[in-house]
Design a protein around this nucleic acid. Structure first.
Length: 563
DNA sequence: CGGATTTGACCGGCGC
DNA sequence: GCGCCGGTCAAATCCG
C-alpha cells in the first residue's frame, strides 16, 4: 500500500500475503463462489449453441523448440456424418409417415418409436384401407429395419475406426517420443504427424495452415464446420515446426481477432491454445524448482501460458479451480472486456487467468492461464486448468483413464526427450466418473521434488499422491468432483455446475455416441495431455511479447454436440 | 457482515 | 523521450 510501486514479479508474493491477511485467503476462496455471474451478460450464449458438434482439436506448438503438436478430436466426417444423415433421413421419413411430432429426436431409438407410430397411425384413423395400410406399414417397417441394420453396421464400423484411431494415436505418441529424442537442439524441423479418424484429412490441412501463420483461415472452421457439425470425428495431428513460423499468434492479446475469425467460422469450437513463455533456458524452467508460486520471482519470468478457447455459455469456463476476479479491461482489438482472475484455491497460488470472449463469436470464451498452480487441483478440475500447471513442467505425465480398450495408453516409453515427457493417456470411462474422462496429471517438479497434480483425479490417484499439504476444500471423491455432480449450487467453485461446456463425461470411442456426448471433456483431456507433454519441452522463445509468446500453442477445439 | 466484483487509476514494458 | 497498451491495484459497490 504505501509503496504502490513494486515490481509485479516480486510483488506477487507480497500481495498474496496481503490478501491472506485481509481475507485470510485460504478459506474464502475455497468455499466460495461459483463462477462470476456477471460475465454472463457479455457472453449471452444461447443454450442451443452449447450443443454443437463435437469437434476437438488440439494443437500444441512447442515454440521453444519450434515444435507443434496438433490433435484433433472431432468430426468424423465421413462415418459419423453419414450416420447423422441417415438418422436424419430416417427421422424425417418416419415423421412423414407416422406423423411423429413431439419427438424430434433423431436417434435410432426414436426411430423405433416412430415405427410404432407409423403402424398405429393408420389404425386409428380409418378402418378402410387396412390392407393397404398394413401392407404399407409392413413395407415401411421392413425398410426401417433395414435402415436400422445399416446403421448398426455403421456404428460398428465407426467404433472400429475410433478404436483404430485411438490406437494410432498412441502409436504416434510413441513415435513422437522417438522423434523427440532425436537431437533437435535448435530448431526442430517440421515434423508433422497427423492422425485422423473418419478421414479428417482436412484437419491436417488445417493444422498446416494454421501453422503457416496467422493465416488462420477456414481450415479449422471449414473442416469442422462443414461436416463437423453433423458428425463426430477424431483426428490427431502432431507437428513440429520451427518456432519462427508461429511467432504470431496474438490470440491472447489483441490477436484475439485472428483466432476469432478462425473460430468464428468454425462456429462453436473450443480452442485450447497453450503457450508458454519461458526463458530461453528452458531447462531450468522445470528445474526452477518447483512450485512456482513460491518462487514467485522466477515464476514471473517463467510463466506458463495456456490459452483455452471454449465455446461456453457460462460466464467463465469451469475449470475446477476457484478464481477471484481482480480486474477487467478492454483490450485493444477486442471490444469484449478481458477479465483477470487469480487462483484462490491456495493462498499463494500464482496462477492467473484471463477470460475474454471472441468478438466474433461471443459464445467462445478465450481463457488464458498463466503460471503454475502451487497446489493440487480440485478433483473436479478440468484438464484445462491443468494445462497451465502442466505447462510449467509440473506434469510429468497425464493419465486419462479409459476403459476403452485399445487406448492402451501407457504405451509409450517415457518420452524422453530432454525435456519432453510423454503423457500417458488413458481414456476411461470409469464407473465413478460417469464415464467421464478423468485425466490425471501428475508432475514432477524440476527441482527434484516430485509433485503430483491431479486434474480429474481419481480418488485413488490423489491418494497415491500426497502432493501438498494444503487442505482441499473439495472432497476427494470423484463422485463429487465430477463436474457433473456439482449441481450448481454454491458448492465448491468447480461446482459451477455443469458449467459451461466443460462437463466431464465423454468417454472414449467406446461408442461414438458417447463421444458425442461430450467431446469437450475429451478434448480438454487430450489437450491437456498434449500440452503437458509439450509443455515440458523447453520452450524458449518469444517470451517478450505476449503476443508472440504464443510460440507454442496448444489448441483444443471442441464443439458441443450438434448445433 | 464478509467476501467477491466493479471500475478508474497507476505502473511498467514496448514500439515508434 | 513519448505515447500506447496490457496488467494490476485498491477503494467503492454489490451480493448472499
Amino acid at each position: 500500500m504505501s509503496s504502490s510501486k513494486r515490481k509485479r514479479a516480486d510483488i506477487d508474493l507480497e500481495r498474496r500475503d496481503d490478501d491472506g491477511d485481509d481475507g485470510s485467503g485460504d478459506h474464502q476462496p475455497v468455499e466460495a463462489a461459483p463462477a462470476p455471474p456477471r460475465l454472463q451478460k457479455e457472453g449471452q450464449i444461447k443454450e442451443g449453441e452449447a450443443q454443437a458438434k463435437e469437434v476437438v482439436e488440439v494443437v500444441v506448438d512447442r515454440g521453444g523448440d519450434a515444435s507443434k503438436e496438433e490433435i484433433k478430436y472431432g468430426t468424423q466426417q465421413e462415418g459419423l456424418m453419414e450416420e447423422d444423415k441417415q438418422s436424419a433421413a430416417a427421422a424425417a421419413g418416419s415423421d412423414g409417415g407416422g406423423g411423429v411430432d413431439d419427438e424430434e429426436n433423431d436417434g435410432p431409438g426414436t426411430r423405433a418409436e416412430d415405427k410404432h407410430m407409423v403402424e398405429a397411425a393408420p389404425g386409428d384413423g380409418n378402418g378402410d384401407g387396412d390392407h393397404d395400410h398394413t401392407a404399407m406399414a409392413q413395407d415401411e417397417l421392413s425398410t426401417m429395419q433395414e435402415e436400422m441394420e445399416k446403421m448398426k453396421e455403421e456404428n460398428k464400423m465407426l467404433r472400429r475406426v475410433v478404436d483404430r484411431t485411438v490406437r494410432d494415436y498412441y502409436e504416434l505418441q510413441t513415435k513422437l517420443a522417438a522423434y523427440q529424442k532425436q537431437p533437435a537442439d535448435q530448431e526442430p524441423k517440421e515434423t508433422e504427424v497427423f492422425l485422423s479418424l473418419g478421414g479428417t484429412a482436412p484437419a491436417v490441412a488445417e493444422a498446416k495452415s494454421k501453422e503457416e501463420q496467422a493465416a488462420r483461415r477456414p481450415s479449422v472452421g471449414s473442416d469442422d464446420t462443414d461436416d463437423g457439425r453433423e458428425g463426430l470425428g477424431l483426428s490427431l495431428s502432431l507437428r513440429t515446426s520451427s518456432y519462427e513460423d508461429e511467432t504470431r499468434h496474438d490470440v491472447v492479446d489483441g490477436g484475439a481477432p485472428d483466432i476469432v475469425s478462425d473460430v468464428g467460422k468454425a462456429r462453436g469450437y473450443a480452442l485450447l491454445e497453450s503457450s508458454r513463455m519461458s526463458p530461453p533456458a528452458s531447462g531450468d524452467v522445470a528445474a526452477a524448482g518447483g512450485i512456482a508460486g513460491q518462487q514467485g520471482v522466477n515464476a514471473a519470468n517463467r510463466k506458463t501460458r495456456v490459452s483455452v478457447r471454449v465455446r461456453c455459455q457460462g460466464p467463465t469456463m469451469n475449470d475446477g479451480c476457484q478464481w477471484r476476479k481482480y480486474g477487467q479491461k478492454v483490450a485493444k482489438g477486442n471490444p469484449c472486456p478481458r477479465a483477470y482472475y487469480r487462483c484462490t484455491v491456495a493462498p499463494a497460488c500464482p496462477v492467473r487467468k484471463q477470460v475474454q470472449r471472441c468478438q466474433e463469436d461471443m459464445s467462445i470464451l478465450i481463457t488464458t492461464y498463466e503460471g503454475t498452480h502451487n497446489h493440487p487441483l480440485p478433483v473436479g478440475a478440468t484438464a484445462m486448468a491443468s494445462t497451465a500447471t502442466a505447462g510449467t513442467g509440473a506434469a510429468t505425465f497425464m493419465l486419462l483413464s479409459s476403459t476403452s480398450s485399445d487406448a492402451a495408453v501407457s504405451s509409450g516409453p517415457p518420452p524422453a526427450s530432454s525435456s519432453y515427457l510423454s503423457p500417458y493417456l488413458q481414456l476411461n470411462s470409469s464407473s465413478q466418473y460417469h464415464s467421464s474422462v478423468s485425466p490425471l496429471v501428475s508432475g514432477t517438479m524440476g527441482g527434484g521434488g516430485a509433485q503430483h497434480l491431479s486434474m480429474f483425479g481419481h480418488s485413488s490417484a490423489l491418494a497415491a499422491q500426497p502432493a501438498t499439504h494444503l487442505k482441499y476444500p473439495w472432497p476427494p471423491n470423484p463422485s463429487h468432483g465430477g463436474a457433473a455432480g456439482l449441481g450448481g449450487s454454491k458448492r465448491p467453485f468447480w461446482g459451477n455446475g455443469g458449467v459451461d461446456d466443460v462437463r466431464p463425461t465423454a468417454a472414449l470411442p467406446d461408442n461414438a455416441g458417447t463421444m458425442a456426448s461430450d467431446p469437450n471433456q475429451f478434448s480438454a483431456a487430450i489437450a491437456t495431455a498434449i500440452s503437458n507433454v509439450i509443455g515440458k519441452d523447453g520452450q524458449t522463445a518469444a517470451r517478450r511479447k505476449e503476443g508472440e509468446s504464443s510460440n507454442k500453442w496448444g489448441v483444443v477445439e471442441s464443439l458441443p454436440p450438434h448445433d
